[in-house]
């Protein structure tokens, strides 16, 4: 009885924290969104900002900057942030591995391969084709990772996921670097892997938006089941959850969301690792709370980092992917050190 009460108390406590987390996160996000629109390589007045958004004049350069450069980039950053962190959280729940991340797990290796493939064989590919192919690449590598981890007696375990991810990504990156070295594309390749959302346009946003929304909605729909599933397969079976369907749909979520991030910003890792960690620290392990918080904080994180990348060496661009990595690696080491006791189901 007492135990039950305490649990209930904790639930309430997490709920309060969730509300705080969401409201502070949303507030900060709003502030930084305005900051993102206002600051940049070119100076723009608030009046121009306002008019650019609501009374657009094609002849006015400042309006163009606001509507065609900053706004799509801001939206792209938000989508990337939400996608990466939600995909990371779902993946961590799905594989029961708190260190899962689309970059670390090798999902992006498939899309890098696709990009290199296009550089060589389809240099004239249109933007839409590019998006299609890199999605296809990400999709194939994800399928292969899950397939390999799935076939076998034990089924999906965190360890098998990591190893199959590693193997598949080694396969793809070996072939990629083979082509790159044979064709002498090393420096172009490196620029792509650095990652940047600087060239996102409205079309990118509008093409990915429906998939993004669908993926995000699906993630929210399965959030309850994910929580239950994390209690253990037996418990969830006892509670009548259909594990196979949930696993399938969560894989779909991971696939769609990581693919969106990859086509917009390139192969960027660590967001999906960092944000869910911080969020779980605040709101616990209930995915109904974790996923929305991840979305808000993920968007906030990418928007802030990209704002820094834009104004750090203006009028030049700093690759945002590198900035994220520079934050991500130390964070990762810190987390794995703290996690020593309870990671990997230990």
């Amino acid at each position: 009885m007492r135990e039950k009460l305490r649990r209930r108390e904790r639930k309430l406590y997490n709920g309060t924290k969730f509300v705080i987390c969401m409201s502070v996160g949303c507030g900060l996000l709003l502030i930084f969104m305005i900051g993102f629109m206002y600051f940049g390589a070119e100076k723009i007045s608030f009046a121009d900002l306002w008019n650019g958004l609501f009374h657009f004049d094609e002849g006015n350069f400042n309006h163009v900057v606001v509507r065609d450069m900053r706004l799509p980039r801001l939206l792209a950053d938000i989508m990337v942030g939400v996608s990466l962190s939600v995909a990371g959280a779902v993946m961590q729940g799905n594989t029961k591995n708190p260190m899962a991340d689309s970059g670390i797990m090798g999902i992006s290796s498939g899309s890098i391969f696709a990009v290199v493939f296009m550089m060589i064989f389809l240099p004239d590919a249109s933007r839409l084709e590019r998006i299609g192919y890199s999605c296809l690449g990400a999709g194939i590598s994800t399928m292969m990772i899950y397939l390999v981890a799935f076939i076998g007696k034990k089924g999906i375990t965190p360890e098998r996921m990591v190893l199959s991810g590693m193997a598949i990504s080694t396969l793809f990156s070996s072939i990629t670097s083979g082509i790159v070295l044979k064709e002498g594309l090393t420096s172009e390749m490196l620029k792509y892997t650095a990652g940047s959302s600087a060239n996102a346009i409205w079309m990118d946003v509008s093409v990915s938006a429906p998939f993004f929304l669908a993926g995000f909605a699906l993630a929210l729909m399965i959030s309850r089941s994910l929580t239950v599933m994390n209690l253990g397969d037996d418990v969830s079976k006892g509670l009548g959850a259909n594990t196979a369907i949930i696993k399938l749909s969560s894989t779909l979520v991971v696939l769609v969301l990581s693919a969106i991030a990859v086509i917009i910003i390139g192969p960027v890792g660590y967001v999906g690792l960092m944000v869910p960690h911080i969020v779980r620290h605040f709101v616990g392990t209930d995915y109904r709370l974790v996923l929305p918080s991840c979305a808000v904080l993920g968007a906030l994180f990418v928007v802030v980092v990209d704002l820094i990348a834009r104004i750090m060496i203006a009028p030049l661009e700093f690759p945002v992917g590198i900035l994220i990595t520079m934050i991500g690696v130390p964070f990762f080491i810190f987390v794995s050190r703290r996690q020593r006791g309870d990671a990997f189901g230990g």
Partner: peptide, 26 residues
């Protein structure tokens, strides 16, 4: 610098009388 792209917002400041695009992958 050569590794760093110019911000799209400032690009027009770098435009001269004649603009040439160098296609690296032709």
């Amino acid at each position: 610098n050569p590794f760093t792209p110019i911000s799209n917002e400032s690009l027009r400041n770098y435009e001269g009388d004649i603009v040439i695009y160098a296609d690296l992958s032709a």
